[in-house]
């Protein structure tokens, strides 16, 4: 469903050095991938490039996405077009937006995606029910809906709120960038439960993480190590365990 080929990405300005230096990655529907690697290696950059962040310029390579049985190149798609086609990015640092209520934001986002996918907008009552279910799934309090989007949320609450959005939007392809960082032990279990419940034959998830912990709950089909803008190793879920005990040195140097 997603094929990334020889992707080179650099931040604004042509003279800037590349952050990604030729990443290739193939994600099929039904799969869960874990993306690991040292700080600053380019994990978030890869996730943002897939979501279409305007600050990250693809200078070489391509990103192909399969939507409704057709393969399309994503590079000239706007970020909102990608989102409406089912791509979701759970941010490492979710942004606070004062004055925009979480509830209004979720409803609007949901309806935008519905419209784009040829579904009818949900009426407010049904949406409310739908939203309650998702809140229950993540054991979140309804009071979060009334508050401004992420404003004053604790670190962990912000991450949970990202998964709430994912649950509401039911994306085909989700990149979750360090959703587990900042979560306490109980919250981690709840979030993992939430993510697992969204796992399905027709969609795919890429988990960016530093810790084996999350992978205890969500078993990935593949684990990739990215270092200095390149995927340097790919393995199965045992690779994460190995990394946990040995660190990155041995893969990076190899």
């Amino acid at each position: 469903m997603l094929s990334i080929t020889d992707l080179h990405v650099s931040p604004e300005g042509p003279e800037e050095a590349s952050i990604l230096k030729g990443v290739s990655l193939e994600v099929k529907r039904g799969e869960v991938h874990a993306l690991m690697g040292p700080n600053g290696s380019g994990k978030s950059t890869l996730a943002k490039a897939v979501a279409g962040h305007p600050d990250y310029h693809v200078t070489k390579g391509q990103i192909d996405y399969e939507v409704d049985g057709k393969k399309v190149g994503l590079l000239d798609w706007e970020p909102d077009e990608r989102a409406r086609a089912g791509i979701f990015l759970g941010l490492q640092y979710p942004v606070e937006i004062p004055g925009v209520s979480n509830e209004n934001f979720l409803r609007t986002a949901f309806n935008e995606v519905c419209k784009a996918q040829g579904l009818e907008e949900m009426d407010p009552y049904d949406f409310d029910q739908y939203l309650r279910e998702k809140l229950d799934l993540l054991e979140m309090d309804g009071s979060f809906l009334k508050r401004s989007l992420n404003e004053g949320f604790s670190g962990g609450e912000k991450k949970k709120n990202e998964i709430l959005q994912m649950a509401v939007l039911a994306p085909r392809l989700a990149f979750l960038d360090e959703t587990d960082s900042g979560l306490d032990i109980d919250a981690l279990k709840i979030v993992a439960k939430g993510i697992n419940s969204l796992r399905a034959q027709h969609n795919a998830i890429v988990l960016v993480t530093h810790y084996q912990r999350l992978l205890n709950y969500i078993t990935p089909d593949f684990v990739h190590v990215i270092s200095d803008g390149l995927i340097v190793k790919t393995g199965d879920s045992s690779l994460a365990l190995e990394l946990e005990s040995k660190g990155y040195d041995w893969v990076v140097r190899a």
């Binding site: 305007p54 600050d55 970020p79 909102d80 942004v95 937006i97 934001f105 986002a109 959005q165 939007l169």
Partner: peptide, 18 residues
């Protein structure tokens, strides 16, 4: 704010709606 704009757009809001 560019990050705020991107956040909304990454949730399906077109540019003017965001």
């Amino acid at each position: 704010d560019g990050e705020q704009l991107f956040y909304l757009r990454s949730r399906g809001f077109d540019e003017s709606k965001a």
